[in-house]
Amino acid sequence: MSTIPAEYKYSSEHEWVSPAVDGVVTVGISDHAQAELGDVVYVDLPTVGDVVAAGDNAAAVESVKAASDVYTPVSGEIVEVNEALDAEPGIVNSDANGAGWIFKVRLSDPSELDALMDAAAYEEFCK
């Protein structure tokens, strides 16, 4: 069973978004998504400073068999990326909701969060 933290918001592309802290959110892929992908062997991280729009292809998570694009659910500037994934991409499997986060975005339009699913809706969506 996948875990779906109640405090996060979710996109239909299976990314999660943390609550904003000082206007910055953390983005990762859901536990459900990592389980579907299988062993993650490479994460293509965005570049700090990139400005992205909601729906943009911002990163890629690759398993042995497939490359899967990561779309940012929110618009803004990339302020940090999870460089630990360069050396240990498997963290995305072992802790998708935590240490396996992928990038942080300074929100340009916080209202975009309202358009995302809450945990209950995402759980339903995964069924």
């Binding site: 299988g38 062993d39 062997v41 398993s63 042995v64 068999k65």
Partner: peptide, 9 residues
């Protein structure tokens, strides 16, 4: 079957 537990394992 493409995998059971994981391809690397």
């Amino acid at each position: 079957p493409v995998q059971y537990k994981g391809i690397i394992d």
